[in-house]
Simulated scan of single mutants.
Amino acid sequence: MKNFFKKHWLRMAGILVGALVGYIYYHYVGCLSGTCPITSNPYRMMIYGALVGYLLFDLFSSDKKTKDAKQDIQQ
């Protein structure tokens, strides 16, 4: 379990930051009329934000397999 958190800490941080930013976006910018499918509901916006946060933070995470593959290509 400890290894899992060490390996995926950046992705989990992305989920948490994304969900927080999603809620903040809903609170300050969200749709007042209720006709916007994503931004009118705080839960949907938090899920959308968590997904975007995960994908964004995943760009900066490095895996050993990826490093090994890049080294093989360069050689």
Rank of each mutant, 00 (worst) to 15 (best):
G34E: 05
K6S: 08
L56S: 08
K64C: 06
S62Q: 13
M46E: 04
F5K: 01
C36V: 07
L16G: 04
Y54M: 11
G30R: 00
D58M: 14
R44C: 09
T35V: 10
L16V: 15
F4V: 11
L59N: 02
G53Q: 04
L55A: 12
L32G: 11
M46L: 08
L56M: 13
W9Q: 05
L16D: 02
G53F: 12
M46F: 03
R44D: 11
Q75W: 09
D63R: 12
L55H: 02
L10W: 04
G34Y: 04
V21M: 10
Y54S: 02
N3T: 06
V29P: 00
T39I: 08
K65R: 10
P37L: 12
M46R: 00
Y25K: 06
R11V: 15
V52A: 14
P42N: 04
I38D: 00
Y43H: 10
Y25F: 14
F57L: 13
G14M: 07
G22F: 09
G49E: 07
N41V: 08
L59W: 03
Y26I: 11
T39N: 03
L10H: 02
Y23H: 02
V52C: 12
Y26G: 08
K7L: 11
Y43Q: 11
L56G: 09
Q75V: 13
F57A: 04
M12Q: 08
V29K: 03
K65E: 15
T35Q: 15
N3M: 11
T39P: 00
S40Y: 01
L51Q: 03
S33T: 09
H27T: 08
T35E: 15
L20I: 14
L32W: 05
Y54T: 06
Q75H: 13
I15R: 00
D68W: 11
M46K: 00
A13N: 06
T39L: 15
V29W: 02
M12I: 15
F60N: 04
L10F: 03
V21K: 00
G18S: 05
F60C: 09
K65L: 10
F5N: 03
D63G: 14
P42S: 06
S61H: 10
I38C: 04
H27V: 07
T39R: 02
M45C: 11
N3L: 13
I73Q: 07
K7Y: 03
Y26S: 07
M1V: 15
Q75F: 11
L59E: 10
A69M: 12
Q71A: 14
A50P: 01
L10T: 12
Y25Q: 09
K65P: 02
I47K: 01
Y26R: 04
I24S: 02
Y28G: 11
D72G: 07
M45Q: 05
I73T: 10
K64N: 09
K65D: 15
T66L: 10
F60V: 14
D58H: 08
V21G: 01
S61F: 07
S61V: 15
G22S: 05
I38L: 04
K67H: 05
G34V: 08
A50F: 06
L51H: 01
S40T: 09
T66V: 11
M45S: 10
C36W: 00
Q74F: 09
Y23D: 07
Y23T: 12
G53Y: 05
K6H: 08
L56T: 14
S33E: 14
I38H: 00
K65I: 13
K70I: 15
L55P: 02
V17D: 00
N41G: 05
M1P: 08
